[in-house]
Design a binder for these strands. Structure first.
Lengths: 222, 222, 222, 222
DNA sequence: AATGAATGAGGGTTCATTCAT
DNA sequence: CATGAATGAACCCTCATTCAT
């Protein structure tokens, strides 16, 4: 169940040389990955710093060279995960202009990342409001950004297709469909991200009233 | 944010006399309600027995007359909540035969209970797998029962309407839409259960391919 | 080096019956005495809660039934000690009207308590400003009260004897003489409180300019 | 609140060239000054090596090039401070022969250093017995030397003036008066070292029985 | 000489639970 | 039935110190 995300914690990682800053970031990334898995399994409160240190093979005290507190650790995970998923999304949307395909790209991007980094996403979904104001505000801000992107995609689609539905309910229902996955996903029964994105996209897009989208079995993402 | 569920914990409550058993159940129900709120606010691991005793106005030690452990307390809450929601659902379904209306009744029943007992439902959604095998099995069994009801409703609908979609993905998407509510529900923006059930029902039913349901604005539940 | 102070923590201790409140206070008093000794030996920061629990024969966790934090423990010690010394002082001063004798009574009272409760007084002197604002304010208030009593005694004496000296410097020098004792006191070399009070009283009173007091070898306190 | 003492840690500082040994001593002196302030504010136990390193702007590990342990650091401070104060005292006493003036010089020297180096002196007074036997013996030896000087001055005075008092009590009372200052000194209310030395000298000298000293307002030190 | 990284031991505090009353 | 008192285990975190670089 190990997270497989490749992290890009420091923007100064361009050069190939193993600068000391680099080594620090790599270690931190390693710790973050392990911690993500443990948080996923036991929850934030249920995971002890001893669990986390054991998982990353570092001494309890040593962990504190990389973050100031358990809370900051959760914060770093959330910020990093959200940052990555948004970055990937923007990259994908650049190449697509068709409103429906843009929504399908959003769904696929979300599900692909979700399934590839289940631990991270479960932590993201679950350990939502456990961050105190200081850290919480930063994360909430990134979340709002992500939410706003989805809203814009839907509004654009609504105008193009001349549809009428509550954008808010629609967006939040979509997030619900996607984020609930960690509860039930089973690779054998449920297939990969592409298949799930297709199915959920069908349900959602037809659901919000597109007449065109029904039956369009060969629509593709990326 | 107090739960308002009326509990039916013991079947021996028929008689009007305040038997000692009766008083016991009433006290337990009171504790369960308060504990539900605390679990909702702080999570299962984050809530201490002291928090729970403070919330219910009973001494720490006194709590242990009503349950054997913190884990059993969570179990009782989950069992009771699920029991109540299924009981209500069966009662409603008895009177409805139209397949679509039965699905809409399911959605409305879920959302109505969800919004009336937000704390309980958040605990139900969140503290999912924290129960050890002994208690966990019992709860999982009830959950499967509830899930199966929904699957049956969909299968029936599918046959009637001669539709083609993945029942599993559909059911789980529907649960996702509904269970994610605790994340964002705001009574002022999002209206009451009836309105939300209508909107989500529309999205979902049209989404799975009903041609009839689209535009049917006056379909009613109960 | 055990403190021997008899504590009067609760004013409701009138009755002889061992009420539950009484037992709580007695236990607390016992803990306070032991803690006083440990603070005296190792200092406030140097003494660990584990040291304190060991000294009082109670489990680490059990201590927290009697105070909320280590800091509050120090606070309770200081408040109690100061309260007792002031109470004794007032009792003594009631019976004395001669200004010089009142000052001598002050000195004797301080030294007697100091020598009988060296641990407590060393803690009082040493762990002065370690209390955060909340607790610190309460203790500082009692200290000011004690200081004010001494100032008044000196002012009265000054008027009676028509002397001229800086009351502030005098009072603070007197406290210095007395409070420094814990650094050097040795019962064999330095005698008991009565003798020390006599000597220090002589030095101090003659020092602030009384012509009468010099040579008055037979002045007595209480 | 920075200490302003100019340190003379190594006798090899004669030459003007910046020998490496010289640089070492200068760095050590800098560290000692900062550490003194931190010990003063937080106490020996309360000050962490991280606090000390932060205060001196040097890395945590770097500190250990200058002393073997936190304890040795305290030792170096105490030894240095005491060494300096005794050195200054001897220098002053060389030029004075009148017994009373010698005592007044002692008081002034002590207070002047105290007020100029409050941090150092508070540490000296407070962190008294925290040194283990190895280091403690060395410091105690210097303290005894300082104490002995004061005893000699008093004995000489006693013989000259043909007085009768307990030298021990007198010396220790004097130290008490002087060392207690850090508790209350306020430059605005209490004036400078000269004024305080005058006042305390008056109280003390008259207190131990000198008939001459009373009213002698123009006695000077240095 | 200087530092970042790392650690075992221990810091104060809270945990779920038990038991005599 | 109810509670105050008590506890061992575990909590997060910081300590003084070491060592490779």
């Amino acid at each position: 169940m190990a997270s497989t995300s490749t992290t890009a914690l420091s923007s100064s990682r361009r050069a190939a040389e193993l600068s000391s800053e680099n080594r620090f970031d790599q270690q931190l990334a390693r710790i973050l990955e392990h911690a993500t898995d443990v948080f996923c399994e036991k929850g934030y409160e249920g995971a002890s710093m001893r669990d986390l240190s054991r998982a990353s093979g570092m001494s309890l005290a040593g962990m504190y060279h990389y973050f100031r507190s358990k809370e900051e650790l959760l914060f770093l995970i959330q910020k990093h995960t959200f940052g990555t998923i948004i970055e990937q999304l923007r990259h994908r949307l650049e190449k697509i202009s068709d409103p429906e395909q843009r929504i399908r790209a959003f769904i696929f991007n979300h599900l692909e990342y979700f399934l590839a980094n289940q631990s991270a996403m479960k932590v993201l979904s679950h350990e939502d409001e456990k961050l105190s104001n200081h850290y919480g505000a930063a994360v909430r801000s990134v979340k709002r950004e992500y939410y706003a992107i989805c809203v814009n995609l839907l509004e654009q689609y609504k105008r193009t297709e001349k549809l009428d539905f509550s954008t808010r309910t629609a967006v939040l229902s979509l997030f619900g469909m996607m984020n609930w996955i960690y509860t039930w996903y089973n690779p054998r029964q449920d297939g990969n991200a592409r298949k799930l994105a297709q199915e959920m996209g069908d349900i959602f897009l037809r659901g919000i009233g597109s007449s065109r989208s029904s039956g369009k079995k060969n629509s593709r993402v990326q």
